[in-house]
Computed example of a mutant assay.
Amino acid sequence: MPTTHETLRAVLVASRRDRSLIEMAAQPVPASFLDGLAIQADIAKTLGHAEAGWKVAIAEDGTPVAGLMPGPWLAPGDVYDGAIGAELRVEIEIALRLAKDVPMRPNQPYSRAELLAHCDKAYLGIEIVESRLANWQGVPFALWLADALGHGGYYLGQELDMKVLDEVAGLTCFISLNGVTIYDQPAVHANGDPVAPFLAWANRKDELMGGLRAGQIVTTGSLCGGVLSPGKGEIVTKLAPLGGVSLTLR
């Protein structure tokens, strides 16, 4: 009988290859967050995904986690093609580019300043969250991890001053669909400091997903939560007053 690992690897690989959705309730749940990460890593290896970037987060129990972002990497104005029936959520974020490798150092944790010194650029980023799981509200987090935290694609917008990481308070997140506002609220990061999940992942104890390497993009987490798009069409996002990214969902 197939294990949970084998079952999820097979079904998620198939769904990503043919851009289909699977029923969450029909899937086994990994026994732990680390098991979820291991399955995600195996899926990425099977699909030949490049380690081009990472979305980092901190689980409710304090465990640092990450999702591989192999692409598509999109420019403002490009079209994002979602799977038929998939829920698409929009997240306004600040992304960082690594200028040099960040090797694991379990006995010498990185400081915030030291970690940021490994980065040379910050960007306004827009993540499209598109899970392979249909009806994924309330999904067990270990299963969400196996699905790469629902990563769909990423838009890299304009370059920002690195100081924005210290000045999130006072910024505003705005999203509209086909000219109708669907979100307009102050920017808030779930961990307070946008660098917190990146720092937690850099100081992780287990290497399951691959390393933090020069040239990769690390996104620091949403400043607006995951905003469900009620339909397809022209999306305008703004991290006011700094700038914005326009795109098309299709």
Rank of each mutant, 00 (worst) to 15 (best):
Q27T: 00
L34E: 14
R89K: 15
L37K: 04
I92M: 06
I39S: 00
A196R: 15
S176L: 07
N178D: 14
L115P: 06
R16M: 15
L98E: 00
D147K: 01
Q216S: 04
L34N: 11
E23A: 15
V245S: 09
D42E: 14
N191V: 08
L228R: 10
F33H: 15
A148Y: 06
G77E: 12
A99F: 02
Y155C: 07
M209S: 14
V195W: 01
I39Y: 00
E87N: 13
P2V: 10
I43G: 01
A75I: 05
A200R: 09
N191F: 15
A134V: 04
L212P: 05
M104T: 12
P106H: 07
Q185E: 14
G244R: 05
L249T: 06
L149Y: 08
A200M: 03
G215E: 08
P230M: 08
E93D: 05
W73L: 12
V180D: 15
L116A: 01
S131W: 06
A50R: 13
T181Q: 11
G225I: 05
P186F: 09
L37H: 07
A38G: 11
R112V: 07
A25H: 12
T3E: 07
M69T: 04
D78I: 02
G157P: 05
K232S: 14
L88D: 02
V227Q: 03
A75K: 15
V188N: 05
L68T: 08
L88S: 09
E93Y: 03
F174Y: 15
P109C: 11
E60F: 06
L242I: 04
